[in-house]
Design a protein around this nucleic acid. Sequence first.
DNA 1: ATGACGTATGTTATGTTATAACAATTGCTG
DNA 2: CAGCAATTGTTATAACATAACATACGTCAT
Lengths: 175, 175
Amino acid sequence: MSRKVSPASVAPALLGAFPEPGHDHAHCVDVALKQAESICQERGARLTDVRRRVLELVWRNHRPVGAYEILEHLGNSRKRAQPPTVYRALEFLLAQGLIHRIERLNAYIGCTAPERDHDGQFLICRDCGATAELLDRRIDTAIHAGASAAGFTVEHPTVELEGLCAKCRSHDHHG
Amino acid sequence: MSRKVSPASVAPALLGAFPEPGHDHAHCVDVALKQAESICQERGARLTDVRRRVLELVWRNHRPVGAYEILEHLGNSRKRAQPPTVYRALEFLLAQGLIHRIERLNAYIGCTAPERDHDGQFLICRDCGATAELLDRRIDTAIHAGASAAGFTVEHPTVELEGLCAKCRSHDHHG
DNA sequence: ATGACGTATGTTATGTTATAACAATTGCTG
DNA sequence: CAGCAATTGTTATAACATAACATACGTCAT
Ligand SMILES: [Zn+2]
Ligand SMILES: [Zn+2]
Ligand SMILES: [Zn+2]
Ligand SMILES: [Zn+2]
């Protein structure tokens, strides 16, 4: 019944880590939706049906999801939703910090720490597509320092790191 | 007539720095084209007319340029080129490391250090659009360290930093 | 409750970015 | 010149995103 959820109490295993293959993903989705409800209520933002539905679809797995992929799953069997419906929901969720946009992929992924105001760093596996969010102070520090040296003030960093996750690297090695 | 151009001898003022308002940009273009010629010759890659022309257009200024913007300037007055022409040239230039793609903007910018194999970091001014390339070891190090801690191997980092350049920040301040 | 207002969603059309597929041309080499 | 690979031309379409206007829905003052 708590309205305020402390960051440490929710989804702690996913910050900067890739999810285990057999993890309880229903739990991930559940936590994400509860956090969203709580955050929106605090702020007086309206988490409507469409928006909740889109958030749920973004959280279908730990890979970034495209807007048109969401669109396909959004319709009520016979009635297909239109692009603006999805894009407006995504815009809302981005504004509330509930999801992030992955620029490299024109796709969206659920935020694992929506209570904090941040721009995350993303680890994107080129093999399995799994994507983890990092919140690394040292990366932020290095970026701000490097930019400062050029007289530049960073406001919105985009850090998207394509590579291989541990699981896929070991496959490459042994296979 | 030197075929090999040492990195230190060309465009040294632009690495990690924003260009001065009144700088000799024809020189920037000239250097970029000469480097491109030299690099392609070394590698046996063919810098054809179309490719050189596109590279020149990417270098028209120090802001990322979209493919369709290039397209507009590519035609020979009455004959408009088609998208694949531009995209194929961009693909070649990317493969040779002569340009970079800015994912946030779906746009392309000339590389200021094409002799080195690298993924740069980009400082993108939200006000004037000027974009500078950074090659900061400490950012790279922090990124690889942070990713390693999550068992992730970074192969292709995208670092695009939107903010305010020194000039625009001072305008904001004083204006 | 009723109307007025602001927010959210539906709907249609279009804009923007990128690629697939195949034909024609060019440059090189035997 | 013939043969071959690389490049460019051409047509069509895919993928991603937004503009503009209509309709519905929630909230509040009357
Ligand atoms: Zn999960
Ligand atoms: Zn996040
Ligand atoms: Zn210049
Ligand atoms: Zn570069």
